[in-house]
Amino acid sequence: MDLPTRDIGQYIAKRANIVVKAAIMAANDQGELLLIQHAEQGHWRIPVGEMRPGETIEGAALRELWEETGWTTESMSFESLYSGPELRQVHANGDEEYYVIALFKARIILDHLVEARVNSDAGLKFFDPNALPPMNSISQTLLEQSGLK
């Protein structure tokens, strides 16, 4: 952010927006959960992203799985819808986003392409649900509320 924008920003009212997101708990045949590691911050998370205008929430979940992992799934089921003050992000400029997140479950069919990407530089790994690594707060909240963690 350049200086004039930063200086003007302090006089503009902060905004709060509601953002619809889709998240997907993808597991392999052994029931291990697929997580993505954040390249800069190091924490792990489930695939999650914003729904786009004109897109179904199911379509958003499938797109996020594809964009973040390069994989698709043939079977996906709706788990639950989550919202609340714990699903919120405050940006550096003071703006807030409150999330409404549709959580889906899916199975990843392991093939040579999946196996080549897991545990590689791609930052993808399957974890036993009882031994999950440190995760970002959104993923942590979703997994706790879904009863997984």
Rank of each mutant, 00 (worst) to 15 (best):
E50F: 03
A26F: 10
L33I: 15
L132I: 08
Q89M: 11
E97F: 04
A13K: 13
L113V: 11
H91M: 09
V48L: 05
I12S: 04
E79V: 11
V19L: 13
F78E: 05
L87V: 07
S83R: 08
L113M: 12
A60L: 05
N119T: 07
R6S: 07
L142E: 00
H43F: 13
M76F: 02
A92N: 14
L62P: 02
G31F: 13
Y98L: 15
S75V: 14
M25T: 03
E74L: 14
D121E: 12
Q37W: 05
E67S: 07
V90W: 07
E55C: 05
V114G: 02
G49H: 09
D95Y: 11
W44N: 00
V118H: 01
E115A: 07
Y82V: 12
V19C: 09
W66Q: 14
E50D: 11
P133Q: 05
A39H: 13
N130L: 14
G84F: 00
W66E: 13
Y99E: 00
G70Q: 05
L35C: 14
M1Y: 08
Y11F: 15
R107C: 03
E32V: 09
P133T: 06
N28V: 08
V19A: 13
L34R: 01
K125V: 04
Y11H: 14
Y99Q: 01
D7Y: 13
E68G: 01
E55D: 03
G84P: 02
H91G: 02
